[in-house]
Design a protein around this nucleic acid. Structure first.
Lengths: 237, 237
DNA sequence: AACTCTTGTAAACACCGTTCACTGAAACCG
DNA sequence: CGGTTTCAGTGAACGGTGTTTACAAGAGTT
C-alpha cells in the first residue's frame, strides 16, 4: 500500500507540520513572525532540527511562497468550477472576483508573494490558472479581434514570447489552438487586463487608493466591466 | 542668524545623519538591513543612543517612509517642472514616466512605501503631486466630459469624498475650480488611471508580469497612450 | 549484534530591539 | 563665577533571532 518506509512517512509528516506552522505564523503575525524558533516551538522541537528539512530560513520562506501559490491556485480553480454558466465571460469574472477575494482574505500571503522585490516567482505555480483561463478566453471567438498592427512593433518580440507561454499552458490541459485565434492584439489585451486587475487588488489590499474607499466592491465590479468591454465582451453577457 | 542653540544644531545634524544612514541601508541591503545597531555603527555611536531620537525601531521606519515620500514627490515635481510644453497632457505623461523611473530606480523604497500591509500612508506626503496634477488635469477643459450617470450610483459617495480631496489639494496651490468641471465621471477616470499606472509599475518593479518582459518601456508607453485616450486626450497631442 | 543513516538535542556565536543605571559635558540660573 | 539641571551618549543586561558544531539516540540494514 504505502510504498514509503516508516521513516519517510514520519519525515513527510514533520515537513507538513513545518509548512503548516510557518503558514499560521505568517497569517497571524506577519512575515517577520515566521521565525525558525517560533516554528520549532509550535512543533515542540528545537530550531536547529529544522535544518534537517531546509537549508536556511530563506529557503523555508521560498517554500512558503510556493505553498501559498498552490493554495491560491486551488482556491481560484474552485471558484472557477463553481461557475456553471459555461460562458467564458462569466468564468473570467468569477476568477477575477476570486483573486480579489483571496487577496483581501490573505493580505500577508498576498504581500509576500506579489509584492516582494525577490527573484521571479515560480511560474509553474503562480499564474497557471490565469494563463489557462486567458488561453481559453482567447481561443473562444467571443473575443473581438484586435489586429496585430494595433500593438506597437517593439512589443511584438515580448508578446510572441507570451503567446508561446499561453499556447504551452493551454496545451498542457489538452487544448490546442491555432495562431489565427491567438493573435498579438488579443494577447496585448490580456496583459493590460492583468495590469488593471493586479493594480486594483494591490491598491485595495495595501490601502493605497488616494482616498478612503468605503465601498470597494462596486468599484472593482465597475473596473471589471470596463476591462471586459475593452477586451471584447459586451458589458452584459 | 541661527536662532537654534548649539545643542539644537547638533541634534538636528545627528537626526539628519540617522535618516541618511537608514536610507543607505535600505537601498543597499533591503528593509531587513535597516537595523538600529547598523545605523548606530554608521554614525559611530551605540544603538541605545538612537532612542534619544526615536521611540522605537518602528517609529524610525515610519519616519523613513515619510522621507521617501518627500523625496519621491520632489523628484516628480522636478520632472514635471522640466516639461515646458505647457500642455497638461504632456505634463501627465511626464509625471507618469517620472513615477515609473523613480520606482525602478528605488525598488526597496517603492516596496516599503507602496506595498506594505501597514497603516495608511501619510496622505500629505504621498500623492500630493498626483492630486495636484489630477486637479489641474480635471480643471483644464481638455478632458472630455464624462456624464455623472456613467458611474454606478454606489460609487458616488466615495467619489464625492475624493472630489473634496482633489478640490482641497488644488486649492492649497491657490487654484479654485468649480463643481461643473470636476464631475464624478472625470474623477472616476482619474482613479482608474491610478489603478493602471500603479499596476504596471508595481508589476514591473516586482517582476510579476506573466512572462519575461525584455523591453518594458514601450509597453508602459503603450499603456499610457491607452490611459490618456480613455481619460479624454487624443493619442497624439 | 554491529554498523550506518537519520533525526533530534545542547551549546555556542554573532546579531537584533529594548531597558536601565550611569557619565560627562553643555546649558541655564542665582 | 559656582551650583544645578538637562540631555546625548555609554555599557551592561535580557530575551529574541539565524546558524554552526559536536554529540546522542533511535531506526534501518547487514
Amino acid at each position: 500500500m504505502t510504498e514509503a518506509t516508516r521513516r519517510e512517512r514520519l519525515r513527510a509528516e514533520t515537513e507538513r507540520e513545518i509548512r503548516q506552522a510557518a503558514r499560521a505564523l505568517l497569517v497571524e503575525n506577519g512575515r517577520d513572525a515566521v521565525t525558525l524558533r517560533a516554528i520549532a516551538r509550535k512543533l515542540g522541537i528545537t530550531a536547529p532540527a529544522l535544518y534537517r528539512y531546509y537549508d536556511s530560513h530563506d529557503a523555508l520562506l521560498r517554500q512558503l511562497c510556493d505553498d501559498i501559490c498552490a493554495d491560491m491556485a486551488a482556491a481560484l480553480y474552485a471558484d472557477l468550477a463553481a461557475d456553471t454558466s459555461g460562458e467564458v465571460g462569466c468564468q473570467v469574472r468569477a476568477v477575477c472576483h476570486a483573486f480579489r477575494r483571496w487577496a483581501l482574505a490573505h493580505p500577508q500571503e498576498f504581500a509576500l508573494v506579489f509584492a516582494s522585490p525577490r527573484d521571479p516567482i515560480g511560474a509553474d505555480q503562480f499564474g497557471s490558472v490565469f494563463l489557462q483561463l486567458a488561453g481559453q478566453l482567447i481561443a473562444s471567438n467571443l473575443v473581438a479581434t484586435h489586429a496585430d498592427d494595433d500593438v506597437p512593433e517593439v512589443l511584438h518580440e515580448d508578446l510572441v514570447r507570451f503567446q508561446q507561454v499561453l499556447v504551452d499552458a493551454v496545451s498542457e490541459h489538452g487544448v490546442t489552438i491555432g495562431d489565427d485565434v491567438l493573435n498579438l492584439g488579443k494577447i496585448y489585451h490580456v496583459v493590460q487586463s492583468w495590469v488593471r486587475l493586479y493594480g486594483h487588488v494591490a491598491l485595495e489590499v495595501f490601502g493605497r487608493f488616494p482616498f478612503a474607499v468605503s465601498n470597494p466592491e462596486p468599484m472593482f465590479d465597475s473596473m471589471l466591466d470596463q476591462m471586459l468591454t475593452d477586451i471584447g465582451f459586451a458589458e452584459n453577457e
